[in-house]
Lab assay of single mutants.
Amino acid sequence: TTIHVGDLTLKYDNPKKAYEIAKKLAKKYNLTVTIKNGKITVT
């Protein structure tokens, strides 16, 4: 599972963990989490 945050690309083997991290990042920086085709993007 890949999380895209701006220019950063973070890879995680565990999709659930990746989603949790994405949610935390989104909350911290007041951003939105988008999931599309298995890719998690924080914008």
Rank of each mutant, 00 (worst) to 15 (best):
Asn30Ala: 07
Thr43Val: 11
Gly38Asn: 12
Leu25Ala: 01
Ile3Gly: 01
Ala26Met: 04
Val5Met: 10
Val33Thr: 02
Thr2Gly: 03
Leu25Arg: 01
Lys24Ala: 13
Tyr29Ser: 03
Asn30Ser: 08
Val5Phe: 15
Ile40Val: 05
Ala22His: 00
His4Thr: 15
Leu25Lys: 01
Tyr19Val: 10
Thr32Tyr: 06
Lys28Tyr: 11
Lys16Asn: 10
Ala22Pro: 00
Asp13Arg: 06
Asn30Ile: 03
Thr41Asn: 09
Gly6Val: 06
Ile3Trp: 00
Lys27Cys: 08
Tyr29Ala: 04
Ile3Arg: 02
Thr41Ala: 07
Asp13Asn: 07
Lys11Gln: 15
Gly6Tyr: 06
Ile40Glu: 01
Thr9Gly: 05
Thr32His: 10
Thr41His: 14
Lys27His: 09
Lys23Ile: 15
Lys23Leu: 15
Val33Arg: 00
His4Phe: 11
Lys39Thr: 15
Ala18Leu: 03
Gly6His: 08
Ile35Asn: 06
Gly6Asp: 04
Leu31Thr: 03
Lys23Trp: 09
Lys39Val: 15
Ala22Ile: 07
Glu20Gly: 05
Tyr29Lys: 02
Leu25Trp: 03
Lys27Thr: 08
Thr43Phe: 11
Thr41Pro: 00
Ala26Cys: 02
Leu25Val: 06
Leu31Cys: 07
Thr34Asn: 09
His4Glu: 09
His4Tyr: 11
Lys28Gln: 10
Gly38His: 09
Thr2Ile: 13
Lys17Arg: 11
Lys11Phe: 15
Val33Glu: 00
Lys27Val: 09
Val5Trp: 15
Lys39Asp: 14
Tyr29Val: 03
Lys11Ser: 14
Tyr12Ala: 07
Gly6Thr: 04
Thr32Asp: 05
Tyr29Arg: 02
Leu31Phe: 07
Thr9Trp: 08
Ala26Leu: 04
Ile40Gly: 01
Lys36His: 13
Ile21Tyr: 10
Val33His: 00
Val42Tyr: 01
Ala26Asn: 02
Tyr19Ile: 14
Lys11Ala: 13
Pro15Asp: 09
Leu8His: 06
Thr43Asp: 05
Ile3Glu: 01
Ile40Leu: 08
Leu25Glu: 00
Ala18Pro: 01
Asp13Gly: 05
Ala26Ile: 03
Asn37Cys: 07
Lys24Glu: 09
Lys24Ile: 12
Val33Ile: 14
Asp7Val: 07
His4Gln: 15
Tyr19Gln: 08
Ile40His: 01
Ala26Thr: 01
Lys24Cys: 11
Gly38Met: 05
Tyr12Lys: 01
Ile21Arg: 02
Leu8Val: 10
Asn30Gln: 09
Tyr19Lys: 09
Pro15Lys: 08
Lys16His: 12
Thr32Ala: 10
Lys36Trp: 05
Leu8Ser: 02
Ala22Asp: 00
Val5Ile: 15
Glu20Arg: 09
Gly38Trp: 04
Gly38Leu: 04
Gly38Gln: 07
Glu20Tyr: 11
Glu20Phe: 10
Ala22Phe: 06
Lys11Trp: 15
Val42Glu: 00
Ile21Phe: 14
Lys28Thr: 06
Asn37Pro: 11
Thr32Gly: 04
Lys36Thr: 14
Ile21Ala: 14
Ile35Ser: 06
Lys24Val: 09
Ile3Ser: 02
Lys23Met: 15
Pro15Met: 14
Lys23Asp: 08
Leu31Ala: 05
Leu8Gly: 02
Lys23Val: 14
Ile21Pro: 00
Leu25Asn: 00
Pro15Asn: 06
Leu31Tyr: 03
Leu10Ser: 01
Gly6Glu: 03
Lys39Ala: 14
Lys17His: 10
Lys27Arg: 11
Lys39Leu: 14
Leu10Val: 08
His4Asp: 08
Asn37Gln: 11
Ile35Arg: 06
Lys16Pro: 03
